[in-house]
Simulated assay, not measured.
Amino acid sequence: MAGQQFQYDDSGNTFFYFLTSFVGLIVIPATYYLWPRDQNAEQIRLKNIRKVYGRCMWYRLRLLKPQPNIIPTVKKIVLLAGWALFLFLTYKVSKTDREYQEYNPYEVLNLDPGATVAEIKKQYRLLSLKYHPDKGGDEVMFMRIAKAYAALTDEESRKNWEEFGNPDGPQATSFGIALPAWIVDQKNSILVLLVYGLAFMVILPVVVGSWWYRSIRYSGDQILIRTTQIYTYFVYKTRNMDMKRLIMVLAGASEFDPQYNKDATSRPTDNILIPQLIREIGSINLKKNEPPLTCPYSLKARVLLLSHLARMKIPETLEEDQQFMLKKCPALLQEMVNVICQLILMARSREEREFRAPTLASLENCMKLSQMAVQGLQQFKCNFTRR
């Protein structure tokens, strides 16, 4: 019985097949999940709103221009480099000679199996004249023709080919492995194990775990689940929310909390500047202790929104925070609308008397606040459009 042997890639040609597949499995999903989304989408949406609700909001839309961010650029560079490597490996694979393809001398000479010796010699002479190097032919093809002719004209070689499929007789079963030989070298075994352990036991679990942790924190509209829970609690608690109460609940979103959103900022100077703005604005209802509505981050967001509606001049150190807060407001107000609508539908589908649905006035005030935030105007000065 013939033995078995494993052939590793000493030349490095077939390793490109393995490497191309490996890079493709990384680059293609990474492009789908990590390619930066259109940064101008929010700006286009706001421009469409401006066309509907009038020109007056353009005064404040200038504050909503996206701030320069280097992270999307770095992601694009890394992904493009990965695709460049993938295309290069694909090109190398397409140019790699197939050294391990099945050898058939009849196919090389363009003959049918069982051809006579006379037919073999005649075909050999024709192909030799065509591919002879001295006559401008292909030297590699000529060598293959000569090898096939020798295999079919020698009686023993031809018999071995017909019985064993190999001119040299029975051979050991060979398995090709598209890995370089140095990977299985005993000298490099510890290094290879360390690399595999680091990749599959450390890096891969960390990447998957980080992605899963981030994904479960957000809803389908990319709003923090904690924010939705906060809105649901206070909307159910206060069935009829006036504009002041609505602004308080809006500012309680976890998107403004540095603990839950790394883009939110909290500076030591806020302890001085925010109280100054509170004195200029007037009463903002600080008596009730309702966390998180009375937390520092929520209080800061509320003051910045009220100063925006009053078109007050704020210190330069707070302008960036105000722009961040204003960019979040449309999506957060839409989430609040969704919460109110869901609670109303739940109340209609239940028969329990103790389940209280929010009033339609709360829904209307929420929609009004969205227009107020975009136009930068207070309630009685805002241009509301009814359809």
Rank of each mutant, 00 (worst) to 15 (best):
M1W: 07
M1R: 11
G3C: 07
Q4N: 12
D9Y: 05
D10Y: 13
N13E: 05
V23N: 03
L25G: 07
A30P: 08
W35C: 06
D38C: 07
A41F: 14
I44D: 09
V52Q: 13
Y53G: 03
W58T: 11
R60Y: 09
L63T: 08
L64T: 08
K65V: 13
N69F: 01
N69I: 01
I71R: 08
T73K: 11
T73G: 06
K75I: 10
K76M: 12
F88T: 14
T90E: 01
S94P: 01
S94M: 11
D97M: 06
E99K: 13
Y103T: 00
P113M: 08
A115G: 02
A115V: 02
E119S: 13
E119L: 09
K121A: 14
L126A: 09
S128E: 10
S128N: 06
L129V: 07
P133N: 12
P133E: 12
G137F: 03
M141Q: 10
E156K: 14
K159H: 08
N160E: 04
W161K: 00
E163W: 08
F164T: 00
D168Q: 14
Q171P: 01
A172H: 13
A172C: 05
I177T: 09
L179T: 13
L179R: 06
A181V: 10
N188P: 00
S189R: 15
I190G: 09
I190C: 11
L191T: 13
V192H: 07
L193E: 14
A199C: 05
A199M: 11
M201E: 06
M201I: 03
V202T: 10
V202H: 09
V202Q: 07
V207E: 04
V208G: 03
W211M: 15
W211Y: 15
Y218N: 03
D221E: 14
Q222R: 13
I223S: 02
L224T: 04
Y231K: 08
Y233N: 03
Y233P: 00
T238K: 07
N240R: 13
M248H: 04
G252V: 00
F256G: 00
F256Q: 01
K262R: 13
K262H: 07
S266L: 09
R267W: 05
P268G: 04
R279W: 05
R279M: 12
I281D: 02
S283A: 08
K287F: 09
P292F: 02
T294M: 01
Y297M: 06
K300G: 04
A301T: 05
S307A: 15
L309H: 04
P315T: 05
E316M: 08
Q322S: 11
F324C: 00
L326M: 11
L326P: 10
L333S: 12
Q334I: 08
M336W: 02
N338G: 14
C341A: 12
C341D: 14
E351Y: 13
E354M: 14
E354P: 01
F355Q: 07
A357C: 02
T359I: 06
S362E: 01
L363Y: 08
N365E: 08
C366K: 04
M367G: 01
L369I: 05
M372D: 02
A373W: 02
G376W: 04
Q379F: 15
K381F: 06
T385C: 09
R386T: 10
